[in-house]
Write a protein that binds this DNA or RNA. Structure first.
Lengths: 149, 149
DNA sequence: GCCGATCTTCAAGTGCCCTTGAGGTAGCCT
DNA sequence: AGGCTACCTCAAGGGCACTTGAAGATCGGC
């Protein structure tokens, strides 16, 4: 155990539920910050745990780390973010989350009806290639992966 | 245009809504098959379109190509799969799809309550690190990405 | 027969999110 | 002071699902 104020890597990693390598990666990406001891070891403020919580949750909503980075950059500089600050950020996830859920529900419903006919035909029921989005850009697949799953 | 029976790469790619490079990739992975002309060009049977439909849909449900490969391997050899065959396969997606939807809904609900308190604390509301799954294995993050999104 | 569009293979690259390993240092307890 | 564990950096590797590019062959209409 160490100082009650600052957490060592092992402590921080355990509390965040994230591997040390990932923590270092996040720091390298500028997503979280750490002070250093005289011997160059990281010491984490507890407030950084909230940032990790934000990151992991945002990932589940479907954001990339680049997007998380942008979002975090909009937090106030110079003071510890308040609840309202975090609230504002996470509220912006709602549409995205809703869209993802809606997409999967649509998929489920179509699957229900298609299980009846056993089709899975591309044109016939539009189950694959939903909303005719694939094929519009050169990299339809990637688009589908990123945006609609 | 060509023979009404077999599709060229351009035709197949267009109808499948998938880039030629992806089609070739799928063939290399053994997910789809193609005959060849005397000059070594691919010609696709229409039935292969259904396989691509299956692949893309399965991906949206969250399966990896390896899993799709396994699933496809269970199709009858020697005859064109029937509706019942496809039906059996896609019906196995339901639990997975339901789980994904449930997870996202849980996330949304928690987000609602957490937006109220602005917390996003790891331990407090369990929003990040849901079900205490992260940290159980060395690569919690990857697990989360793959299984719970 | 010619020509341009389409096709082929193969190796390497991409994007995302980390993990692994080597070689060396710090912290802390006894 | 010794020694063990935890920590450091940096480069490279890994998994997934493709994409890109180079160099060359084929197709099919005129």
């Amino acid at each position: 155990m160490s100082n009650a104020e600052l957490l060592t890597m092992a402590e921080f990693s355990a509390r965040a539920g994230v591997a040390p390598s990932a923590i270092r990666f996040y720091e390298a990406q500028g997503l979280i910050e750490a002070t250093r001891t005289g011997g160059n070891q990281r010491r984490f403020a507890r407030t950084e745990l909230r940032r990790v919580g934000f990151i992991r949750t945002a990932q589940q909503v479907g954001l990339t780390l680049d997007e998380v980075s942008e979002a975090l950059a909009s937090l106030p500089r110079g003071r510890t973010p308040t609840r309202a600050d975090w609230q504002l950020l996470s509220s912006q996830w709602r549409p995205r989350l809703d869209a993802r859920i809606a997409h999967l529900e649509k998929l489920r419903d179509k699957l229900d009806s298609c299980i009846g006919c056993g089709c899975l035909s591309l044109k016939r029921c539009g189950l694959a290639n939903p909303d005719d989005q694939a094929g519009r850009t050169g990299n339809g697949p990637v688009f589908l992966q990123r945006e609609t799953i």
